[in-house]
Simulated scan of single mutants.
Amino acid sequence: MRLRTDIFVSALMRRVFARGDFAAVEAKGAEEAGAVFVRQIFRDGTESLHAPAPQSFFDEDDTGRRLFETRLERAEAAAVTDAVARERRFDGDLWVVSIETDDLGDLIAFAGEEPKDDGFFRR
């Protein structure tokens, strides 16, 4: 069973703040099952956009973890803004979380990575 989106986003933000980084909810979507997009902002002004991984990455025995894939990497802010706008036209219930950090570390899990269990998120 997947964790509600509002709880996932809240926990993600707490983890970001605990690391000493900054995060903000740029767009709030469906509380129970909205897709989450992560906008990573680097110190040099470039940004990356991480989106939900396609369903083909999930096993039949899915543990409910959220997997991400990188859609844009170290692009100009305008390109990321345009990509988010296109996604919002397609799905108005999505969430956009902006995180100002040069390293996401273990904040989100990427498709194709080995799952991690840090005691809170099963990843």
Rank of each mutant, 00 (worst) to 15 (best):
F110H: 04
V25A: 05
K116D: 06
F22D: 10
V80N: 03
E73P: 08
G34M: 04
R2V: 07
D21E: 09
L67N: 02
A53M: 06
A23W: 15
E60K: 13
G105D: 04
S98R: 11
F68G: 07
R14H: 11
A30Q: 07
R89C: 08
G64N: 05
F58H: 05
D93Y: 11
R123F: 15
L12Y: 13
D103K: 01
R123P: 01
F58Y: 12
A18G: 10
E73W: 11
R89S: 13
R66I: 00
I41S: 05
E60S: 12
P54T: 01
F68M: 02
D82A: 15
R71H: 12
R86A: 14
E76H: 09
G119K: 12
E76I: 04
V38E: 04
A24L: 14
A27T: 13
V16Y: 14
A35S: 15
G112F: 04
A78P: 09
V84E: 02
A78K: 13
D106Y: 15
E73Q: 10
K28Y: 05
L12F: 13
F110V: 03
G105P: 07
E31L: 08
I7F: 09
F68A: 08
A83C: 03
E100M: 14
E73C: 09
G92H: 08
D117I: 09
G45F: 09
D61K: 04
R19V: 02
D59I: 03
R66P: 00
A111G: 03
E69S: 15
R89N: 11
R2M: 05
D44P: 14
H50A: 14
D44A: 08
M1I: 12
E100C: 13
I41Y: 09
I108S: 01
H50R: 09
E47T: 06
D93I: 10
G20Q: 01
P52C: 08
F8M: 05
A30E: 05
A23K: 08
F121Q: 00
G34S: 08
G92D: 06
V25I: 13
T81N: 10
T5K: 02
D117S: 06
Q55D: 14
F57G: 03
F120D: 02
S98T: 06
D118F: 11
F42L: 07
H50I: 05
I99H: 11
R65C: 00
V16T: 02
E113S: 07
A111T: 02
H50M: 11
R88K: 13
D21L: 03
R66W: 01
V25G: 00
F22N: 15
R2W: 02
M1Y: 09
E32K: 08
F90I: 10
G34Q: 06
D62G: 06
G20T: 08
D103Y: 07
K116A: 04
F42N: 03
A75E: 12
G20W: 04
A18N: 13
A77T: 15
D118H: 14
V25K: 11
F58N: 02
R122G: 04
A83L: 03
A23E: 08
E73S: 10
D103E: 02
D91H: 00
V96Q: 00
R66T: 00
K116R: 13
V80L: 05
T46H: 11
L107P: 03
D59T: 09
T63D: 13
P54Q: 05
V16K: 01
D117Q: 11
S98E: 09
S10A: 15
D102F: 15
T46F: 06
F110G: 12
F68R: 02
